[in-house]
Design a protein around this nucleic acid. Structure first.
Lengths: 137, 137
DNA sequence: ATTAATCCTATCGATTTAATAGGAATTACA
DNA sequence: TGTAATTCCTATTAAATCGATAGGATTAAT
């Protein structure tokens, strides 16, 4: 299941991408229009800024803006920051690999084999889709 | 993330499929060979039996056996029983659909569009793979 | 100054997960 | 007939995670 954090984060990024204005977009505006609890969204925006997807301007008339072109923001990268690993088991994760406690040899594990296929197909989608694709009509 | 429940369940099914004997396979045997806590595995086997994947024999020399041919057991079906929805958001789930609280119109939701693609690709893999594929060398 | 915004850390309650406990029911077999 | 071995069933627990909130500190525009 996708966490609300990720869902809200994706919606917020899409909202900003669609805004296209010069002025930064405020949390309160996104919160209202996308029905996201404001305080929760605050913490998500903070994460996205610290991960290099967003820039921010503080104080009155402040807000958030994209740092890169929407077409350069891959969903796979956003997902990794907000949701964590894309793989369904750590032993097939490219960026968050961990050995399983119970598997003596993961090359001989049926779950491993299946989950590699799932990962590859999910990754294909998430690498192909950029923020531009999400925010396009 | 795949739950341990699902992971253990898949491993157990694979183990039984590989056993090929006439006698039912016991929980204690699976538990030892696959490093799965026995009591936990008990409850998982119960679920798999009640969902129609396994039959059981009680008492001494009892155990579990497959009811269908491994080639007839689709991973998508097993996953739905053990893990729940395959979709990452309920609003794109085929079998567990639920409307989102925050979306006035899900056809206008960027997350929705993306997650449909993810679901379709995941489903493709999970429908293509049967227990036979998992248990084959 | 005042107002309006982001920034930051901590915390809380609810839910889910992984696992365990403790026995009841059933069957094989000596 | 009795004992051991197994599945069956329900309840409980401990830990982790999730969604959200609290309360201010900091910064900038006017």
């Amino acid at each position: 299941m996708l966490s609300k954090k990720t869902k809200y984060g994706l919606k917020a990024l899409t909202y900003i991408a669609k805004s296209e204005g010069d002025t930064p977009v405020q949390i309160s505006e996104i919160s209202k229009n996308e029905n996201i609890p404001q305080k929760f969204l605050e913490s998500i925006m903070l994460t996205l800024r610290k991960s290099g997807f967003l820039g921010s301007k503080k104080g009155k008339h402040g807000g958030y803006y994209l740092i890169k072109e929407p077409s350069q923001i891959k969903m796979a990268d956003v997902m990794r920051v907000l949701e964590g690993p894309i793989a369904m088991v750590p032993c097939v994760s490219l960026n968050f690999y961990e050995k399983c406690d119970d598997c003596p040899d993961e090359h001989d594990c049926s779950v491993h084999k299946l989950m590699i296929q799932v990962r590859d197909n999910t990754l294909k989608v998430l690498r192909n889709n950029t923020l531009e694709d999400l925010s396009g009509s």
